[in-house]
Simulated scan of single mutants.
Amino acid sequence: MQRTTILISSPLEEEHVARIRAMDPKRLEVLFEPGLLPPTRYRNDHGGAPFQRDAEQAQRWDALIRRATVSWDIPKAQDLAKMDGLRWIQATSTGVGQHVRRLGLHDRDVLVTTARGSHAQPLAEFVFMSLLSHWRGLSHLQAEQRAHRWERYCQPPVAGRTLVILGAGDLARGSARLAKALDMHVIAIAREPSKARAHDDLFDEIVPPGALHAALGRADAVLLTVPHTPETERVIDAAAIAAMRPGIAFVNIARGQIVDEDALIGALRTGHIGFAALDVTLVEPLPSDSPLWDLPNVLISPHSASTVLEENERIVEIFLHNLECWLDGRQADMRNVLDKALMY
């Protein structure tokens, strides 16, 4: 029986590697040498800290990558060039379309599956941590507490506000569910509004991209959840921002390239956008001289809103399901297969 050889190409906790090994030892060989992988800076750190293999380590790593037919995570470009036997990659992120294209994988006979489904809940928690702290005046309360001042005040409720979500997929689902629990009105902007989705009931309206500006004009908050593709690049430009209501709240958990960042900064400075929570930016890490760091109405998250302690556990569950399908020759049943043409 020919065994499938899996390379763990990015840091992964030992207990998860053991689960992969235990799935089908007769048909699987798992190549995992943590000493050849970058040291982690935090749990679920897929990239690892800056790391350089010495000559002996580089030779050992080179021998490993040449044997792999399956890779846990997307290997580096220089490694991919040597992996002639590679047939499938299980990515640890959802929005990998641009990365796959940059690496030339769109032209290779290599299946790519993503981590879609593992990040919706933690990202939704970040979205509503941000929106509720803004709308319910957390900074005001903290300032009043520091001043030892007790002055009652009144605010509009969250219930009844309108959330416009750019996208109608898994990330939109997670946030829409919390929005509906707060009695908000949810409008999704979808490439295919009539497409049947299991979570369609979470959206009060689903409208096409051509209705984006009209929807933005009704929004109390806008949330970006779409992948970065040629169609979505800078879709939130100066004209889209001008279509928004003054004082709108803006949250981006998608990709920084979806937004004209200069136009966003200008709108934040004037208050046209009253508040922004950004888990992603155009350049990452965010340069130290970016105005976004110091704007008082901006919350910066270092692309970490999706990273929770259980992240790798959830991705491994996806991988194990896909691995069983792969071994049984049921590729049609694999989850989260990347459409390389659509880039998601």
Rank of each mutant, 00 (worst) to 15 (best):
I6T: 14
L7Y: 08
L12A: 01
E14S: 11
V17W: 06
R21H: 09
K26V: 15
L31H: 07
F32Q: 02
G47L: 14
D62N: 05
L64V: 07
V70E: 09
V70N: 06
D73N: 15
K76L: 13
D79T: 07
A81M: 12
D84K: 13
W88D: 09
Q98I: 08
H99W: 02
R101M: 09
L103P: 11
D107G: 04
L111H: 05
L123R: 04
H134F: 15
R136D: 02
G137P: 01
G137R: 13
G160F: 12
G160D: 12
I165W: 07
D170Q: 14
G174C: 07
A176I: 11
L178D: 12
M184T: 10
R191W: 00
R191Y: 06
D200E: 09
L202E: 11
F203N: 04
V207A: 02
G210H: 03
H213F: 10
L216G: 11
A221H: 12
I241N: 07
P246W: 00
F250P: 01
V251F: 01
N252C: 00
N252G: 04
I253F: 01
D260V: 08
D262T: 15
L264D: 10
L264S: 06
F275Q: 01
L278D: 13
V280T: 08
S288C: 05
L292Q: 03
P296S: 11
I300Y: 06
S301I: 01
S306P: 00
L309G: 01
R314Q: 10
L320D: 00
L323H: 02
L323N: 09
L327G: 07
D333A: 13
V337D: 04
Y344P: 00
